[in-house]
Amino acid sequence: MSWLVHYNYWIVIVLMMIGLYLVMARHILPRKIIGLNVFQTSVFVLFISMGAVNDASAPILAEGITQYANPLPHVLILTAIVVGVSTTSLALALIVRINEAYGTIDEERIHQIDEED
């Protein structure tokens, strides 16, 4: 089963590519943001899976436990989750604003309107 030891990376890559495809191929703006979210979560899973250790316990000190998971990726991802929500909220506010200015959230329509002006 030695070829299976990297399966966590493969799941991450599949999720990452789904996110990338959503960002690249969809021209309804909220769908792009959803794609970014999917991509973001795949990076979270990448970090956390790199910090996971076989037969380890959650990094909370307790009697009788010798093997803990790596706490450093957990800290980095805690920060990243909150930052991710901030950027998502800003992006969604921008979409609301774009919808007010252009009357559409379709990227191609926005380009058309820009060219007409």
Binding site: T41, F44, V45, I48, S49, G51, A52, V53, A56, S57, A58, P59, I60, Y68, A69, P73, H74, I77, L78, I81, V82, G84, V85
Partner: peptide, 19 residues
């Protein structure tokens, strides 16, 4: 839920609440 399985409980509850 995946983060709980990977022993990252703090990340899991942040993701569940915030994400």
């Amino acid at each position: 839920a995946l983060f709980v399985l990977l022993d990252a409980v703090d990340v899991a509850f942040t993701e569940a609440a915030v994400g």
